[in-house]
């Protein structure tokens, strides 16, 4: 649904741009293509790595790894799994909810969701391309640590 909104916004703005200035619109589309083409090799590489990773670490395997572990060790394991995998939200949230139902701790799920969304080991090459190594490592490192803070707060609120 949200994708549709973005498509509509893009189409409307493109039309307005076209009516106002054809050459500029042409240039915009050229730039759009160029920036896409520029990053496409990295995108495709990432998608293959994700494919390989998720073929091995499928939801069942992840449940196995996360399900039985608890405490701080369990949190570290789930945080690392979240950091290296890249699962779209519409798969991750039901997975976390199901794991919660089958006995996983709420703090483990909070840290999993947090690192899943904020830390991207697989997408680091793209991030480095734009932000450089140091900024990328800093952002991901701090996001990793921060995920534990989120988990602790969730633990306090729901405990």
């Amino acid at each position: 649904m949200f994708n549709v909104i973005i498509y509509i916004i893009a189409a409307v703005l493109l039309l307005v741009s076209f009516l106002k200035d054809r050459t500029k619109t042409k240039m915009a589309l050229k730039k759009a293509w160029k920036s896409f083409e520029n990053i496409l090799p990295q995108f495709l590489s990432i998608l293959i790595i994700i494919g390989l990773l998720l073929a091995v670490l499928d939801p069942e395997t992840i449940s196995g790894l996360i399900g039985h572990k608890s405490g701080w060790m369990g949190m570290v394991v789930t945080a690392v799994i979240g950091a290296i995998t890249l699962i779209p939200g519409f798969v991750a949230f039901p997975l976390a909810a199901a794991l919660l139902q089958s006995g996983a701790g709420i703090m483990q799920m909070a840290v999993f969701i947090s690192t899943l969304m904020m830390v991207g080991i697989v997408t680091m090459p793209v991030e480095i391309k734009y932000f450089g190594k140091r900024a990328t490592v800093l952002r991901n490192g701090m996001a990793f640590v921060f995920s534990f803070i989120v988990a602790v707060v969730i633990g306090v609120v729901f405990g």
Binding site: I6, Y7, L13, L54
Partner: peptide
């Protein structure tokens, strides 16, 4: 893994066009 990659490529191609068009428009305007 091939199936997952194909799914993700299709997903990427479905979300990316408007985002990059907006990017181009932003750059020019």
């Amino acid at each position: 893994s091939l199936n997952i990659t194909m799914d993700n490529v299709l997903y990427m191609l479905s979300v990316i066009p408007p985002i990059f068009i907006l990017l181009g428009l932003l750059d020019v305007w």
